[in-house]
Design a protein around this nucleic acid. Sequence first.
DNA 1: GGAAGCATGTAAGATGTTACATGATTAC
DNA 2: GTAATCATGTAACATCTTACATGCTTCC
Lengths: 217, 217
Amino acid sequence: MARPLPTSSYAVLGLLSLTPMSGYDLAQAVDKSIGHFWPMSKTQVYSELGRLDSLGLVEGHAIEQERLPDKRVFRLTEAGSRALDQWLDSQDHEGPTFRIPALVKIFFGHRMSRERVAQVLEDVAGDADAESEQLRGITELLEQIPKAAHPWASALYGLRMSEACAAWSREVRDRLAASDWARGHHDASLDSELARDLFEAAPAPRRGRRRRSGGPS
Amino acid sequence: MARPLPTSSYAVLGLLSLTPMSGYDLAQAVDKSIGHFWPMSKTQVYSELGRLDSLGLVEGHAIEQERLPDKRVFRLTEAGSRALDQWLDSQDHEGPTFRIPALVKIFFGHRMSRERVAQVLEDVAGDADAESEQLRGITELLEQIPKAAHPWASALYGLRMSEACAAWSREVRDRLAASDWARGHHDASLDSELARDLFEAAPAPRRGRRRRSGGPS
DNA sequence: GGAAGCATGTAAGATGTTACATGATTAC
DNA sequence: GTAATCATGTAACATCTTACATGCTTCC
């Protein structure tokens, strides 16, 4: 058993399990479904398809089209279907990752003016509100469709997260405004003394692949 | 003006702005501070240092050590300091990305048994609770340190998110258990009919670099 | 009738991770 | 006294993105 496939492979297998699609269609489908919590670019979809094809997990049929470029429509093979179910059943998946540049800015907020920090927080809240609104629509729509329970659950996740994000932003804004904390900007020297302590304080969360399904001891 | 630097570069600049460090120290510092919302591997830190050095934004001094390998301690240059402040001030940053394999599994929950779905949700909640507990400690600690307002805000973000994640997991669990939704498993055929509609329903959220600061029209 | 967009992809390059190397030091 | 860990990195590789190619079609 070689290195396990990355999550992106299973994402593609999963979408193809719903209906056969071309690479282009797949990329669209990603953006409109799992893209909220597992983004993939168009080209990455194509290279996943290449790999899965060479592994025999999907197979593609060329289809000629009028006034459009020919396309290859891919569908799961038996092996692909099994691989997908095995992954769904296993606990051996990558850990989640969150990458939020705005938070990096906030972390170094002592180098910014109060106003600038407030503005970054505002932006975060604004983005989160927009996302919330969008996801609220999707969630409500999916809620009506009895068969769409799992897509609904996924969409709700995004909704709850963006709500929490907006709430956090406002909580911090109020807290910073209310307290004396926010005074003492451009006082990096003291902060750098503090730095050592901070780095000691926080345990290191390790990410990456987790929960390896232990074979027989 | 060449291609703008990736967020990771500024993350390194930011940490070096607190205190000069070796690559090894930096990697530790990342894990214990911004790693929660901007993870970087050790090796990536080194390659960022290489780039920043060649750009003249940081400079390293070799230091010999007894019974330990020599190290190079890096610090910001004037240009590096300016680059950092400029980034903090700008609105031209990458968008956030969330990659959550467990959610991909949930999305394809129709291929799993009810029990298995419940277990995945449980796992998510468990992980979130563990993360919450850790971050609660950090947050409370930082709350006491007047100068640590911004690190506090960042930690609080992680805390609020993991709380929301755990809450979501339980909300979905209850909802799935209560409703008739969860029946009709292994009924992928209907779901695949549905698939088209789903893909139509959801607007495509585009990610990547945003808010380009518009130059003069 | 030129510009923008759709429907397909491919090629090149940047970003990020896992595995390896090495000598000292500490833990059992 | 061997195994694990620390403190430094480097080399090799996998993942993901941005830019390009191409012919049709729709918009103004």
